[in-house]
Design a protein around this nucleic acid. Structure first.
Lengths: 340, 340
DNA sequence: TTGTACGCGTTATCAA
DNA sequence: TTGATAACGCGTACAA
């Protein structure tokens, strides 16, 4: 009962008296089948309960319409939000996504890659940091990176340098005695590194004291609590009674910092202006809505997918341009909210 | 260059002098190939750069090792967290996931289903509410629902009734003058409805006044802010000076309520004890960590996948038990944190 | 232990 | 407009 095998073109062909070829054409080039015959086939499909089989289709055509996605975690708003936007491109482009959520384990990620390639994905979107772009660029399919080291592969990133500038300028709308930037140790090869530069350059350019506090904030949200707390205490000690403009590397850190401020001051205080980064849902879920630099996650996701699609086309056409890495950049927006 | 077609068993066979069958056996039943010949093949695979093709494998065996997932949104911690855990079962079971993130649009969801079936998924995990289980149960593959109407299909849910009881009992650890439950309009067919019952029954059983406030909190996090605020004001007006124990339908609502309390009282206050539901990352990201009823999302995800796998096996074996819906339940845990 | 021959469900090519 | 036949890449009886 459960194991009745599926209805195939063969069955439809027998039932209608046509050949398999005609049934195939009914689907792929309906114009080449008489309206009357189409009707016959349509009814046959219905009565026999035909169920499309894309696997056979793929084997014959070589086109899977699959894209692989590897993302570090879905517990962080940034990634889940990005994945959300990526998956939603289905409605426009029809590509399906096989998703892996990655450990920091290079071996595991290699397995994901193997699987994805075995399943004949046409392209890959990767957000994980573990595998170097050097080894990713030699894959048989185009790869687009989002906010990770991208030297040898395509990428779409926020204009991080501009973001850093925007954050500094936003903080300076209100007078601040000192500008502070909270970030994790960030390798220069990572796009986000430029946020620090932009911030620093803007401060220097305006003759403002700025303090870049690099602390290890870890990767999971649980880990974040402690280092943010100690960073807060440091700020309290180092700049007592001063108005501090704090630019946090992301909304999650900003949220925890806001939490510390609330605990100490019972709410917002002129002593702290806080700006986050990303504009994840987090930033509005906070007790006080957090001003942030909006990466425009939806735009980035869409650009990433479009770029990938373009590369897939080029590759299929045998165009050598397919193998030249393209790096796109999306300008972030300033979002003024309660914390500034 | 980019379009060189892939290396197949045929090529390896020619290169080594073996037949395709032997190459196939090298992969599937290596024990039946001489160690020496295995070595020869291994080297041939290497030098020719063989790349496994699962599509052909699937067509031949009928087993895709695909599971489809349909989830309403990834902007809400509950769903992204659940998806995270589901995807991570790959490391244990090896099944791959094709993921769709669904609108509330029934037509769109039907398209997702069609696609998934066409790609020969072996089973489906669904969290969306749009399609009734009545129409889901007639699919050719097993379906497991999580926290949605599940009358005719398998499901894994939190023991919502117990959860409601736990929430009430947790609030009563500290004396409260009134117990309040905040929830969206919830259909009786949805598992979460029983939370309300559990809460109410416990209150009645202990002779406590309880107020079930049903408000439309919408689906996205942006929408939530306003109704929570007005609910808060209602509580303030209705129970001035009283100690309120508030059980929120989920952590997101709890978080917004906490935000309102902070804004009014500058921090925690004995006037409000707050309990959330789910134990999403949200609950610890809040300014004060939120006490919550832990659904054990990881356990639910794992159970859902195991159940699906079991059903897939039964179906394959032609066992009629495959078609009998199984409803599993996971007991939630009480998590005492700062808000109580 | 290895090879031959055929099947999986679809599309592509060519001929009718 | 339609049909016969050969791919697509791999698995599996069955035979050797």
């Amino acid at each position: 009962m459960s194991e009745k095998k599926q209805v195939t073109f063969e069955d439809i062909a027998k039932y209608t008296g046509f050949s398999k070829t005609t049934i195939s054409r009914y689907f792929n080039r309906p114009a080449t089948v008489t309206e009357n015959n189409r009707k016959i086939i349509r009814e046959a499909l219905d009565t026999l309960g035909y169920q499309e089989n894309k696997v056979a289709h793929i084997l014959a055509t070589g086109k899977t319409e699959y894209v692989g996605v590897i993302v570090p975690s879905l517990e962080l708003d940034y990634y889940s939000s990005m994945l959300d936007k990526i998956l939603k491109t289905y409605n426009e482009f029809g590509y399906k996504f096989i998703v892996f959520v990655g450990s920091n384990d290079a071996a595991a990620e290699m397995r994901y890659l193997e699987e994805l390639l075995a399943y004949q994905i046409e392209g890959l979107i990767i957000m994980n940091h573990t595998l170097p772009s050097m080894s990713l660029c030699s894959l048989s399919v185009p790869v687009v990176a989002i906010e990770r080291e991208d030297r040898f592969i395509n990428s779409v990133n926020s204009d991080n340098y501009l973001g850093g500038i925007e954050a500094a300028s936003l903080l300076l709308e209100k007078p601040c005695d000192v500008l502070i930037h909270l970030n994790s140790p960030t390798d220069e090869s990572i796009p986000a590194y430029r946020r620090i530069l932009g911030f620093k350059d803007y401060c220097l350019g305006h003759g403002l004291p700025c303090d870049i506090m690099i602390r290890d904030f870890g990767y999971s949200h649980e880990e974040l609590h402690i280092p943010v707390k100690s960073a807060f205490e440091e700020m309290e000690n180092r700049y007592p009674g001063m108005k501090k403009g704090v630019f946090c590397a992301n909304d999650v850190i900003a949220n925890y910092l806001l939490g510390q401020v609330i605990r100490k001051y019972g709410g917002l205080t002129p002593y702290y202006r806080i700006v986050g980064f990303d504009n994840t849902p987090m930033a509005v879920k906070a007790a006080y809505s957090i001003s942030t630099i909006d990466q425009q996650i939806d735009v980035i996701a869409r650009e990433a997918f479009s770029l990938l699609l373009e590369k897939i086309r080029l590759k299929r056409a045998g165009d050598p341009a397919a193998d030249v890495p393209v790096h796109k950049t999306v300008s972030p927006l300033i979002l003024r909210r309660e914390t500034t």
